[in-house]
């Protein structure tokens, strides 16, 4: 019945020699290191998609409905070479940037008002809940009436599409700034606009950046849609107008080339502008992975 007491364990101490026999760190194999490169993985996805497109188009065998990847690439090459596409892109981008920047300025004004006063907060929340669900394109007829056929009416709808999304994100970011960080800032005598600039904006940068991204996408879409639906509102006509015109003339490969340019610009801005911004700010600061 009685269990014998376990034999007492011996105490011991080990004197440690420097560990030299095993390398303390080693490199990963080349394949794994390459796989860590985001652009390489994304390029692979794009190549696979292009291959699938080419295969489906060849199986379909109808150029009018679905031109193949190679035909689209050829049309794109021709368009770029002839200078027609770059000109259209230029027209679109200039209008887009004007609207985008104006939207950013207004959004920051509105959010700064919202963090400093109760009435500003109410104004922001009422305005965003009213106007955020309203498609910007639905305002275009009205804008044409007010501002006439020209850049101004396009800029108006672009501002509308950027402003609310960005203001909402920025405000949410400001609200998410930790109380400790705010108190630390106030402790050093920062108040009002200086607190916003030195503490709130950098601390809310992840949200602000995501707002800028959403705003950019909204603006881009709105612009193309506006040009598609209402044609050359600005007289010269941009990328949307190019797509619309070519569809009318049944140059489907050019339509696809125009769409590809829209996509390419989106990818470029995302990977060059926003990724770079994120890398030198929020990711470097450890605020975002």
């Amino acid at each position: 019945m009685t269990t014998s007491a376990p034999a007492p364990r011996q105490e011991y101490e080990v004197t440690l020699e420097p560990l030299l026999s095993v390398p303390l760190e080693r490199e990963l194999p080349l394949g794994q290191r390459l796989w860590q490169q985001g652009w390489l993985r994304k390029s692979l996805i794009l190549i696979l998609l292009a291959l699938a497109w080419e295969a489906v188009a060849r199986y379909q065998g109808n150029d009018l409905l679905l031109p193949s990847f190679l035909q689209t690439a050829a049309a794109l090459y021709d368009g770029l070479l002839s200078g027609e596409l770059p000109a259209k892109v230029g027209v679109s981008l200039v209008v887009l940037l004007k609207g985008y920047l104006l939207g950013i300025v207004l959004a920051f004004g509105l959010t700064s008002l919202a963090v400093s006063t109760q009435i500003g907060r109410d104004l922001l929340s009422s305005l965003t809940s009213m106007f955020n669900p309203l498609p910007a394109i639905a305002l275009l007829p009205l804008a044409l009436l007010w501002f006439g056929l020209g850049d101004n009416s396009l800029i108006f709808v672009l501002v509308h599409s950027v402003l609310w999304a960005l203001a909402l994100n920025t405000y949410a970011g400001f609200m998410g700034v930790s109380e400790t960080l705010r108190m630390a800032g106030r402790n050093y005598g920062l108040r009002g606009l200086r607190l916003v600039v030195h503490i709130l904006i950098p601390a809310a940068l992840p949200s602000i950046l995501s707002g800028l991204k959403i705003g950019w996408a909204f603006a881009w879409r709105t612009l193309i849609a506006a040009e598609l639906v209402f044609g050359a509102t600005s007289g010269k006509g941009g990328l949307g107008w190019y797509i619309f015109q070519n569809r009318n003339e049944l140059y489907t490969d050019k339509v696809f080339a125009g769409l590809a340019v829209v996509i390419l610009i989106g990818l470029l801005v995302e990977s060059l502008v926003f990724n770079t911004l994120e890398r030198v700010t929020v990711r470097r600061w450890g605020m975002q992975r």
């Binding site: 930790s178 400790t180 960080l181 630390a184 503490i199 950098p202 601390a203 940068l205 600061w285 605020m287």
Partner: peptide, 10 residues
Amino acid sequence: FQEFDQLPPW
């Protein structure tokens, strides 16, 4: 403060 986020991460 007690919290670690008292240091601005930027």
